[in-house]
Amino acid sequence: MNNQQAITMNNPVFTSKSEQESSEILPEVILQAEDVSVSYHGIPALQNISLEIYKNQITSFIGPSGCGKSTFLRCFNRLNDLIPETRMTGKIRFFGQSIRRMNPVEIRRRIGMVFQRPNPFPKSIYDNIAVGLRVNGYRGNLDDRVETSLRHVGLWNEVKNKLKKNALDLSGGQQQRLCIARTIALNPEVILMDEPTAALDPISAGRINDLLMTMRQYYTIILITHNLKQAALVTDRVAFFNVEINSRGDRVGKLIEYAPTLDIFVNPTQQTTWDYVVPGSRYSS
């Protein structure tokens, strides 16, 4: 019996999930995007996206490369602010409050992010987690917090004897779990994940998937993935993005369909979604 099965079977919420969705009693909305458009150097990258992110669910963004998923994801923690010449219009509400009115630094602490390529700081394993806590003025016991975070990503046993070693000595998968640990140590209300397993080998990716399965009921996660299996396996809702070419010839990202995972994969309402999620479908007819 492998880990995944063990985890899902120990997980009471997992079995009741489909009932919940069918009755459509939706959980609390944490993030709400209203008519969001982003342009880069005046050229539109994505347009008129509106969707809601629900508490303690994993929502995944799927779609072909260049459809603006990452750009959209980075709107939620205002990371696009750091890129010159990038402009966002529309509104994103975090617990009902417009994030434009909030302090970006505070938003980024409350909405954590994990990137495609593991990006641990070239510091010790311990400091990778501690630095965020220190900067944000954490008042508790640092050692305890570091240990708990590492335990929660399943890294503690592997690194407990080398906490002072440089994090770059870890394998890619371990680095990525360290990055997740670094993020959850700050107790974020939402975690953004931009293809967290894309740069990893299948074994490491599998372990991150295991971790996501465990986290799904306790964290609000937005997950970008190109891996449809991963989307089907770990997520509650799926948003499908596609590229459309506008009248001026720009490639603009659009939200095509947003629905519970099962609906997207089994019963999509849009033809383009169907073409994307069912391999070979576009050649069959």
Binding site: N3, A6, N10, T148, H152, L155, I184, T214, M215
Partner: peptide, 14 residues
């Protein structure tokens, strides 16, 4: 082992 240990933990963190 540490992977198995996750399952028995109380999520989320304090």
């Amino acid at each position: 082992e540490s992977s198995r240990a996750i399952a028995s933990l109380n999520f989320p963190l304090d």
